[in-house]
Amino acid sequence: MMRAARVLAAASLLAFPAGAQTPAQTATQSAEQAAADLRAAIETLDKADGARNRIAALTQTIRAYELGLGALREGLRSSALKEGEIRARFDARRDTIGQLLAAMAAMEAAPGPLVLLHPDGPEAAARSGMILASVQPALEAEAARLRGDLQEIARMRALQDSALAALQEGLAAAQASRTALSQAVQDRTDLPQRFLEDPEELRALVENAETLEGFARGVARLQSDVGPPMEDFEGAKGTLPLPVVGTLLRRAGEADAAGIVRPGVLIATRPAALVTTPWLATIRYRGPLLDYKNVMILEPASGYLLVLAGLATVYGETGDVLDAGAPVGLMGGEEAALSEGAGAERTETLYIEVRQDAEPIDPAPWFEQLREE
């Protein structure tokens, strides 16, 4: 009876729902899917046809690569953590598992009639049999989980071996795509122009600018030919994608390390990240400004301005009308060599403002990724 009780106690510690998917399996599947998406993004380059279509295809490829790269690295990190958890859990319960296996081996080795004998009589023997019968499902579930954990570790190791090749291939393709995109944008001649600003007036604004705030207000005051009606920008509030793949570093109104408060949001990005326009827009200004590196000011609708600051490279000319998702530039820096954790840090920052009638408004409610529920 005591042996059966010990077996039941051990089995209760090891119980795991049969057929359930472990967090490790979920992490590995996510990483494998990210690797597949990354390879699929690389293959889209071969389908680009024509100058404008090629720009769209290159943009799509670079953005898919950046998303896939982030997901794959995150998946690899998560898989490595789960592998460590599996091994730690196994080590922590090694003694319990050993005791359980020894007890079961002893019961299997004992002759059938002896198992039925019990020093306390038939009733105790019956209770012992019921306890042993209840242990079996828990043992089977634990054995299945242990097999699954071992298989998952093997999958993780295989994924880690193949992921480096995918990342190296993706890095080379992304670098080539960025170069090709820059050339394709330079060669583009078929973009419509919504207006042509007076270069003298705009140049004077740049030369006399003391702050981004003052410059943005000056651009908003410049007269322009409104041209054809723009799409319903106000109706898109809350659904816009971020112009760049990254994470929120600072919200509007939050002070930075120097105590400076700005009306825009700051997004941390990886080096050389692609920046796109989240909405159909006209370029009102593009170029260097103060200490913001390059600034891109877009007009998605009459009375609205979208300010992007901190780019290393900007595309297009003042007056160009861009489709939603069109490339407007690249962040600075170089993507690091691909080893575990290398290049994963978001070392660049993109500053984003939204202005209505020249006044800054909180950008967060406009972008789906930044909305606070």
Rank of each mutant, 00 (worst) to 15 (best):
T239Q: 03
A312P: 05
D256L: 06
I297E: 01
G325R: 00
D256Y: 02
A252E: 15
G316M: 00
R250I: 00
K237G: 06
G246K: 12
L311T: 10
P300Q: 06
P263L: 09
A301D: 15
V245D: 12
V275Q: 12
G287M: 06
A255L: 08
I260G: 02
A312M: 10
P288T: 11
I297W: 02
E234Y: 04
V265K: 10
A273T: 08
R284I: 06
L306Y: 09
T247C: 09
P288Q: 09
M230Q: 05
M296E: 13
M230G: 08
Y304R: 02
E234F: 07
W279H: 11
K237M: 14
L274Q: 13
L289M: 04
P278E: 03
N294S: 09
F233A: 09
A312W: 07
G238N: 13
Y315T: 07
A255C: 10
L248Y: 10
L274P: 11
T269Q: 05
W279K: 01
T282I: 11
L311S: 13
T318P: 00
T276P: 05
R286S: 05
L290E: 06
A273W: 04
L298M: 02
A255W: 13
W279T: 04
G319F: 12
D256G: 03
L305R: 05
T318L: 01
G316N: 00
G319N: 10
P241S: 01
G235E: 10
A324R: 14
L280Y: 09
L274H: 13
G264E: 14
A326V: 11
W279P: 00
V245M: 12
L305P: 01
L290C: 07
A309P: 14
P288H: 04
W279D: 04
G325I: 03
P271N: 01
I267A: 08
F233V: 08
V275W: 08
A255F: 11
V244F: 06
L322E: 13
L274G: 13
K237D: 07
A272T: 12
E234K: 08
P288D: 04
P300Y: 02
A272P: 10
A257V: 03
L322C: 12
R262M: 06
D232F: 04
V244E: 05
T282C: 14
P229K: 09
T247K: 15
G316P: 00
M296C: 13
R286K: 03
L311N: 12
G316Q: 00
L308M: 15
V265L: 11
L306M: 15
G246P: 15
I260W: 05
V321W: 05
P300D: 07
T313F: 01
I283V: 15
V295R: 02
G259N: 14
R286T: 05
V321C: 04
D291I: 06
P327T: 10
L289S: 02
K237H: 11
P243F: 07
D291W: 07
D232R: 03
V295I: 09
T277W: 11
V265C: 13
I283M: 10
P300T: 06
L322F: 10
R286G: 05
P278T: 03
M230D: 06
A324K: 14
S302I: 07
L298D: 00
V321E: 03
L322H: 11
L289Q: 03
P243K: 09
